[in-house]
């Protein structure tokens, strides 16, 4: 029983990471109807920036903050420079651009920071007796950070004017322009925000899985499975899906399929959802009378 609970708790911790990346994927999907396959590699790149800053002697949280800002700007620039000209391109060429972006980030990361596996520090204490050994301090801390981020993002979109404008631009760009929303900038902000969320996920997972240029490859797959499971056009669904995949992965890895087949499990989930319920379990069909 103790072991099972432990698996569930650490499943929630990694699930939070998947949920964050899933949310980043959904944010861009809603605005562009494309899945940003490079989301994971962008996050890895950001994590290396954080490591570089920490190695320069900056405190963890200062490095964390600077990394967020830099990642946000990188996301913004990618949208403005690379994605803007692609806005009306056929689906296949957009997919090509995303794959290209993935490869570019991957090789630039390897070239700049080397391919050797590196340890990444955790900002949380080594041991915390108060947690009673159910869950490691880093897992607990990462879950807390993830939940705070998700709440902030929710609050931003739900309660601020800018958040409303971004949602409107994603749902209905034509009408959004007619009320004076600068849709192009909203898209760029969305990319910036998604990149920053991905960066947090990268920095939170790196102490667990260690840092190398391919660190996020598997995580992106789990996150994509989570996003599909919850509904790729439903942010809340994607977050819940991400947590669910984390827990399923951990329990199945421990009791059912073993660690080697865990990634296959993600693929099974993706295929299963696509075949059985393409809109996702929580996929919201738009109620419409028009």
């Amino acid at each position: 029983m103790q072991a099972l609970l432990h698996q569930i708790f650490s499943g929630i911790a990694t699930g939070g990471i998947y949920a964050s990346v899933a949310l980043a994927l959904v944010m861009i999907y809603q605005a562009t109807h494309h899945v940003n396959f490079a989301q994971g590699e962008m996050a890895t790149f950001s994590t290396y920036i954080a490591l570089t800053l920490i190695n320069y002697g900056l405190s963890y949280w200062l490095a964390f903050l600077i990394t967020l800002v830099v990642s946000f700007i990188i996301g913004l620039i990618i949208e403005r420079v690379l994605m803007r000209p692609m806005a009306s391109a056929p689906v296949l060429s957009s997919v090509g651009v995303f794959i290209g972006l993935l490869l570019i980030f991957n090789s630039v990361t390897g070239w700049l920071f080397s391919y050797t596996v590196k340890a990444f520090p955790s900002p949380f204490p080594e041991a915390m007796p108060a947690l009673g050994g159910w869950v490691s301090p880093h897992e607990a801390g990462a879950t807390a950070v993830t939940l705070i981020v998700l709440l902030l993002v929710y609050g931003f979109f739900r309660f601020t004017r800018l958040g409303l404008a971004m949602r409107a631009a994603a749902y209905n760009p034509v009408s959004a322009r007619l009320v004076g929303i600068r849709v192009g900038w909203m898209l760029a902000l969305g990319w910036g925000l998604a990149a920053a969320i991905g960066a947090i996920a990268g920095m939170m997972i790196a102490p667990i899985v260690f840092l190398d240029p391919n660190m996020m490859a598997g995580i992106l797959l789990y996150a994509f499975a989570g996003a599909l499971l919850g509904g790729i056009d439903n942010p809340l669904g994607a977050v819940i899906g991400g947590f669910a995949v984390g827990v399923i992965e951990n329990i199945a890895g421990a009791y059912l399929v073993g660690a080697e087949l865990k990634l296959t499990l993600a693929l099974v989930i993706i295929l299963g959802v696509l075949v059985l319920k393409p809109a996702g379990l929580l996929g919201r069909a738009v109620v419409s009378r028009v």
Binding site: L164, R167, A168, Y171, N172, V174, S175, A176, L178, V286, V287, S288, V290
Partner: peptide, 12 residues
Amino acid sequence: HVPDGRGTFLEL
């Protein structure tokens, strides 16, 4: 502009 088709933000 009240556009052709009304331009409602259906999801909101």
